[in-house]
Design a protein around this nucleic acid. Structure first.
Lengths: 230, 230
DNA sequence: CGCTAAGTTGAAAGAAGTCAATGAAAGTGG
DNA sequence: CCACTTTCATTGACTTCTTTCAACTTAGCG
């Protein structure tokens, strides 16, 4: 199933000349990562543009050199269909981020040379890359806003709501540790908040999966966060 | 002095065909903003790519609708030479950011149409836009890291150090309110930290300007004081 | 079947925010 | 040029959210 990823269907290649896409697919290699394996680590140059076919990847800035104590902060989490790596590709500097598989993950890798050649042929591809990058930029902006002026409770509620919107039913594909890291809180805090939501009948936790019972109630929590309900 | 901005000298246009740059300059309009004026506000579509010639602009997400109580969070601050707006241009969705002049500011505006035409002619320009966007993305990543796992004290120290590196001598061109917002802290906290640094002889505050006395001491405060290469 | 990692829960400590009052500076207009 | 208004900065006391530390439970896996 892994190799059958349909590049044309991805937003990134919408409108892009079919011949160019075909050419890119030919140049692409498929990498398979076990849970915990790294796609790349800090310091390594980025090998190309990556497209997730299956699984889940965590992008995090790793603490500067042997500074063991500091726990790393997850910046982005990529699921199927996500494209990333353009940034490192463009900057050329190694950077300190590490990208680690959270489950068994299949990822398509398009080499720098092939990508550039394609961009030269088809400027629309450049436009789509810019769009992808812009989307990521705005995602980070929203994250910064959330971290800066929302409580942990609001952020978790917001996160769950987002997930509900995306996958329509339930969710939780990676450890709470990673989610907490992405939200900028400790696993302890996340656990407490989740159980509070659970007590308030907003969600149900069952065997590591989370069922959203009351998306509207969650939205209320995420929003103006007031309402001193008993 | 304002109109004499030399586009070729900007990193954004390095290596780009001179004819294309000339063409862009011809298409560009110069906007002059008074202190406090908005380049654009949330909801408005972005008119083009902006390049700061002179002054200082603050990009912030404004609180969702009449929710006046919530203070906004500064995301980026742009000084002379900075280029931005590509993101909004690419996404087309209005977004909620507002861009406000912090002092009298001159900014060059390159319309969407002209920019796209140029990109089609000269793919290298697309590459440079990608690079610019990537740089901003990484800046935000570092910000997220700083907010999440550094104390206010460390962030301020880090910020001052950055400024020292950039302008080599002294600094403070906008209100502390804005700096605090950019650092994700309150003005009160910033004031306290600054005065603490002042007491420890790391900086000197004088008539709204800040003189860095001891960059190394500051680096030590900023965290794992590395880069002690005299 | 134990082992290790992940999650839960409680109590205590700390960092930063809020509120509020004061002081300083800067722009406005007579 | 001075009085006035407004915004910005400073400082203290208090509050609250979040983290930290630690102990304990659960679950997954060789």
């Amino acid at each position: 199933m892994g190799e059958a990823i349909n590049l044309e269907a991805l937003p990134l290649f919408r409108g892009v000349d079919a011949a160019v896409v075909t050419q890119l697919r030919a140049a692409a290699t498929l990498r398979c990562l076990r849970k915990g394996e790294y796609l790349f680590r800090g310091g390594e140059p980025c090998a190309g543009l990556y497209i997730v076919a299956e699984g889940l990847l965590k992008l995090a800035l790793q603490p500067p050199a042997g500074d063991e104590a500091a726990c790393e902060r997850a910046i982005e989490v990529f699921g199927p269909g996500a494209a990333f790596g353009e940034d490192l590709l463009c900057l050329d500097v190694p950077g300190r981020m590490a990208c680690q598989a959270q489950t068994r993950t299949l990822v398509l890798q398009i080499g720098k040379a092939a990508l550039w050649q394609a961009v030269m042929q088809e400027p629309l591809l450049a436009a789509q890359l810019l769009r992808n990058l812009s989307g990521r930029l705005h995602g980070l902006m929203r994250d910064i806003e959330a971290i800066s002026l929302q409580t942990a409770l609001q952020r978790v509620a917001g996160f769950l709501r987002e997930q509900a919107f995306a996958t329509r039913r339930t969710w939780l594909a990676c450890t709470q540790r990673v989610i907490a890291s992405k939200l900028g809180i400790t696993p302890e805090t996340l656990s407490r908040v989740m159980h509070r939501f659970c007590a308030e009948r907003l969600v149900r936790i069952e065997r590591g999966k989370i069922y959203l019972i009351d998306p509207d109630g969650l939205a209320r929590q995420a929003g103006v966060g007031e309402l001193a309900v008993a």
